[in-house]
Structure formats: C-alpha cells, structure tokens
C-alpha cells in the first residue's frame, strides 16, 4: 500500500509575510498561527466552529481557523487581527469598535472584527440584516451585540464618532456626593436604541 505522510512543509502568507514551516497533519490553522507563528490575537473559544473566536480571513474568505488544518492552508494567504492596523493606524472599523463601546472583555473581539471587516470588504454598504448575518457566527457574552452592530453600521455609513446608546435624552446631571453630603440631587437619564432601524 502507498505510504502517506503525516507531516508536511507548508508555506503560508500571513498579513503579507511569508512563513514556511513543517507541521503535523493534525495541527489546525489556529494552532499553527498561535503556537508556531505567535499570532496570539486569534482566540480559541470552542474548537468546533460554533463560537467564531478563531475567525481569520483565508484567501479573502472568513473561516473558523479551528476547523481548517494547517496543511490545508498551504499556499494560502491569511489575514489575522494583527494585520488590520497599519503602521499604528487603526482601521475605521477598529476605531468604530472603540468609539461605540463594542468591546468589553475583548476575547471575541478579534474574531468579531475579522468577520465584520470581511463583510465590509465584500459589501461596503451592508444593511443591518447583512451585518447581523455576518457576525451571528461570532458569540459574545458581554456586549449583547448591539454596540457591535452599531459600530459596523457606522463604518458602512461612513460615520464614526457616534454612540447611539447614550444621551438621547438626559435631564440634569448627578449630584456631587463625593464629599459625603446626604440627599444629593436626584435626576434621571434616558436612552433608547431601536435595533430595527438605522443610525
């Protein structure tokens, strides 16, 4: 019987740079990126393709790198979160994530940004539904997704610096009780977000 190999020399371009390495067949692209190339930004959340934390762009397509073998990525071109900001300049999407409060613990963020950026690359003016479809494979336990959707939407609309969650209506400010005076001023703040509409 033919002898088949269990380890392979592969060449992968990551964020524009070429890397050559020898990998065992069972190594995933995720493991290759993290353990061999030390691109630590990509995260592992479930290793069965359900959570999207390991999303990278492979030859222009968003994939969960936990379900791609490193050997399958031979000859391919990969984009990871580390390749997004250029010369210290954040992408409009990264800026929008910051400005819209789309980040909390940050563990889902790299995968989320890769999914969203891939959408914007395919479709610079996505609808809210397009955005939701593109990121719904990326689980986030902190944010409730709304700020993420708004961040992506703001880039699509070419408008950053707008947080739709705050300041729709605010009445007065807080009382200064830092020194400890009792019964400070009582006032109220309101805000709303319709998830159905656009910004």
């Amino acid at each position: 019987m033919h002898e088949y190999k269990k380890s392979f020399s592969i060449t992968v371009r990551v964020n524009g740079n070429e890397y050559k390495d020898r990998v065992p067949s069972h190594m995933t692209l995720l493991q290759f990126l993290k353990e061999r190339l030390h691109f630590l930004g990509t995260k592992e959340g479930c290793s069965i393709g359900e959570c999207g934390a390991c999303t990278v762009i492979m030859d222009g397509k968003a994939v969960t790198s936990c379900l791609v073998l490193a050997v399958e990525a031979d000859g391919s071109s990969i984009r990871t979160i580390e390749g997004e900001a250029k010369n210290g300049e954040l992408t409009p999407l990264q800026k929008a994530f910051i400005e819209h409060g789309a980040v909390q613990c940050g563990f889902c963020t790299p995968g989320m940004i890769m999914s969203a950026q891939n959408l914007l690359d395919r479709n610079p003016h996505p609808s809210r539904e397009d955005i939701v479809e593109a990121i719904s494979g990326n689980l986030c336990r902190c944010t409730g997704y709304e700020q993420i959707i708004q961040a992506v939407q703001s880039v699509a609309n070419g408008a950053t610096k707008q947080n739709n969650l705050v300041g729709v209506k605010s009445v007065g400010g807080g009382g200064d009780t830092e020194g400890g005076q009792p019964g400070g001023k009582v006032s109220e703040h309101n805000s709303k977000s319709k998830t159905g509409g656009t910004l």
Binding site: S136, G184, S187, E188
Partner: peptide, 17 residues
C-alpha cells in the same frame, strides 16, 4: 447570538446619590 437580541431596548437611569 446577534440574531436573537430584542427588537428594541431602552434604559432609564434614576440618580439618587
């Protein structure tokens, strides 16, 4: 997931220091 969030949310903050 992002597909499962409520259609509309609103937040109201009462400020009794």
């Amino acid at each position: 997931t992002a597909k499962d969030i409520p259609k509309e949310t609103s937040r109201h903050l009462v400020l009794t220091p």
